[in-house]
């Protein structure tokens, strides 16, 4: 444990926090623009050229807005819930390799904060803890909408954890490792060796589970604006609400990275082209998150549970069994 390692890690953490907090803001701008274009609107236009400075305006608004803690809420829990959402989102990023390792000033940098050998399990676990943000926020809010949202958050997270875990089991069996770098190296041979071709079912299942765990549109039930206002965020204002927001968008970016690394070949052989390809894949998956929001309707909560336990989970189990049989013979 030398000092250089410590300094490097701290620098990487700071860069990660800054980049992805800013990207969360930029993600909202991007989302508003994409949705607007798909609905024949212009979207935000007034803050700077094509409203590119919208992030700054939103930031100023969020930071300067009055922080309201309503009566009857459980104060400390109410205050800590947004922090949990944002913190778990960024904690999950610790095991994600964002780029191939490169050399700068003769010093080799690995753009991963900690390459623990159970990377995927760790990411799944920490994203599962992300449940506590909406759950505690909703239960502490002393508000019926928030409580409904908390119940939905608990059921959706617990159910879709099962699907995401089981769907990843088959690729893990093929690679024989839980580290995302090993996953990347397994698929380094080119497009033909991508995991999506050998495990298409697992890919579809994991993408569906990713939509549920990030609460994006076909499964946007946890904070469904047209029936439960903003769900767990109803009573929040100012930067506390902003933290929920940053957590949600950071989660979207990180899960995009995970999907790209596990199923779509990651950064390939580690060249500059591979790094750019990874960014391209991540952007496309993020765009897909926004695209479905414009195109697809929401499902009902009971349909969501039905889909998880009666359709997706059996398919995932069958997929594992078939993969096991194929690998055995």
């Amino acid at each position: 444990m030398d000092t250089a390692y410590l300094i490097e890690t701290v620098i990487k953490i700071v860069i990660l926090l800054l980049v992805f907090s800013a990207l969360a803001g930029f993600g909202t701008y991007f989302e508003r623009k994409v949705l607007a274009f798909m609905q024949r609107r212009l979207g935000p236009m007034h803050v700077g050229p094509y409203s590119l400075l919208q992030i700054a305006a939103d930031g100023v608004k969020l930071f300067t807005k009055e922080d309201i803690v309503p009566q009857n809420v459980v104060g400390p829990i109410f205050k800590i819930a947004p922090v949990i959402t944002a913190a778990t989102a960024f904690m999950a990023a610790a095991a994600i390799p964002f780029m191939p390792s490169f050399t700068i000033f003769g010093y080799e940098v690995h753009p991963i904060i900690s390459d623990i050998n159970v990377g995927i399990l760790y990411i799944l676990g920490v994203m599962a803890i992300g449940l506590y943000g909406p759950l505690l926020g909703g239960m502490a809010s002393a508000n019926k909408w928030s409580l409904i949202s908390a119940a939905r958050a608990a059921s959706v997270f617990i159910s879709y954890e099962v699907v995401s875990g089981l769907s990843l089991l088959a690729p893990i069996m093929m690679v024989g490792s839980l580290s995302l770098i090993d996953f990347n190296n397994y698929q380094a041979a080119g497009v033909g060796s991508w995991m999506i071709w050998s495990q298409p079912v697992a890919f579809v299942l994991f993408v569906i589970a990713a939509f549920a765990e990030t609460g994006r549109t076909p499964f946007h039930l946890i904070a469904n604006d047209h029936e439960i206002i903003d769900g767990f965020g109803t009573e929040y204002s100012g930067m506390r609400w902003g933290l929920f927001f940053i957590g949600e968008y950071a989660n979207m970016f990180f899960i995009s990275f995970v999907i790209a690394l596990i199923f779509l070949g990651g950064f390939g052989d580690g060249s500059v082209g591979g790094a750019l390809a990874l960014l391209g894949k991540v952007s496309f998956i993020f765009f897909f998150f926004l695209w479905t929001r414009a195109a697809w309707p929401d499902v009902r909560p009971d349909q969501l549970m039905w889909l998880c336990w009666k359709v997706l989970m059996p398919i995932a189990v069958v997929n594992i069994v078939i993969t096991g049989i194929v690998m055995m013979f």
Binding site: N117, V118, L121, G125, A128, A154, F157, E161
Partner: peptide, 22 residues
């Protein structure tokens, strides 16, 4: 024991206590 640590997080925090919360 990275594996057991991750399992501890997933099982106890992610599942068991979420059911308590339910």
């Amino acid at each position: 024991a990275d594996f057991l640590g991750a399992v501890q997080i997933i099982v106890y925090t992610g599942a068991v206590l979420a059911l308590y919360a339910f």
